[in-house]
Design a protein around this nucleic acid. Sequence first.
DNA 1: TACCTTGTAGTGGTTAGACCACTGCCGCGA
DNA 2: TCGCGGCAGTGGTCTAACCACTACAAGGTA
Lengths: 253, 253
Amino acid sequence: MAMNGPNHNHDAHLTMQVVNHIRKLIENGTLRPGDKIPPEREFAQKLKISRASLRAGIGHLAAMGVLNVRHGVGTFVAVGPPALGGVSLDILRALHGYTSAQMFEARRILESNLAALAAERGREEHFTALAEEVTEMYATFHEPQEYLIHDMRFHRTIAEASGNPILAVLMETITAALYDERRKTVERSQDLRQSAEIHRALYRAIRSRNAKEARAIMEQHLELAESAQRSEQALAKEEKRLSAKKKSRRARA
Amino acid sequence: MAMNGPNHNHDAHLTMQVVNHIRKLIENGTLRPGDKIPPEREFAQKLKISRASLRAGIGHLAAMGVLNVRHGVGTFVAVGPPALGGVSLDILRALHGYTSAQMFEARRILESNLAALAAERGREEHFTALAEEVTEMYATFHEPQEYLIHDMRFHRTIAEASGNPILAVLMETITAALYDERRKTVERSQDLRQSAEIHRALYRAIRSRNAKEARAIMEQHLELAESAQRSEQALAKEEKRLSAKKKSRRARA
DNA sequence: TACCTTGTAGTGGTTAGACCACTGCCGCGA
DNA sequence: TCGCGGCAGTGGTCTAACCACTACAAGGTA
């Protein structure tokens, strides 16, 4: 029994045809990062499919971070940060039972290696950028939200300096998932100055191309960060519990 | 920044509302892995949006691997498998210039750590599974495609034994990207028996809980694998060049 | 009984065309 | 010169109908 009927080729769903089509255009260089793809109506007509189907495919690629859709402007091939994840680990945690401890462990492994690689391969421009962030951290250790930005930039710069964008992306994926929690707890942090000092030490190890020390400091840093975040989270939880109790008392009144 | 204005809440597009809505249902446990979400027509009505918009949101989540859509059956919350990647590194390579060397390096770092963790935390069931795969590798080292399956299972089992599913998923993402190439070159491989022996050594190190040795063997194994694949790939390329020349000669005749 | 065909209901996939909402920019008018 | 109104282009949403796939049940056939 052959596949008779009015339908032929169908690689799979039309959606996937669109995805593969655009993917190929990107892979063979027809579309390059930053390029604009044709307007949906026009593109759909060219591919001989409905606009809805085209949009389904574009949606897929957008969800994966390959395309960047701007309402009222156009759709563009993504440029810059890849965004491999897309699935904030939050949902993976709910879905597969990932724990914070596992995320921290993954981060520790990735970042300690990134630090070592950065020490081996970092270039002057990276060192300069790292130094700047350290300076900023010292200048803002009384402003948690501000500080956090420089903290993240520091780590991201190390990832860049490692010369391995794949590892950098993986780290970014994990870090992003931890960011929300971190932003909440950093306000309570009492030791941002100490944190800045650790980062300075890390910077010096990297700059002096001491891979072993860079790795060691990074490991220690992240272990400390984890335990600190844990205790602060526990505190926050406790406070929340108390305020909830207060609230319910008010509600009864 | 208050959320007032003519338009209400609107997190963003309707699509994102749908994504967040379903995400929350999963995060708070209303929807659990394997569960079926309501039929599109019904669900759309319940959310007071059009079926098209609902589908856009579902498409997003499906692209991220959170939902699993089965034509003619229904849409289900993903269960088990990885689903972090989504973007096969192939496209990232085309998009951001990732090289094979970088992928191998990332893999080396991840797997060596996974091996060490597996040695520390692996359970009896993992050891048994590893032993089985090693046996199978010896039994099939003359059948490359078959061998490759057991090879991959072996590595995947180590990842599971590490007790950190996040690292396992990251590894899976990278490995998947390398798989296609590997499948092509493994046919030419002359030393699968030697490969099996390395795996057996690795198994023994893990089983005896010698994390340091496990890490070392894994690193060595992957370095060898990389250089082997490189040279085989070079050979294949050369042959292809020759056969193309031959072909063009035939064509002229 | 055992097997296979044929419906059929339920679900996702696709289509068409219309209209809404946002962005960028051009030109009119103060 | 400056500001703002409006227009054109583009993505976002809606509707409603129909197509395609899957599973399963009912009936026929050996």
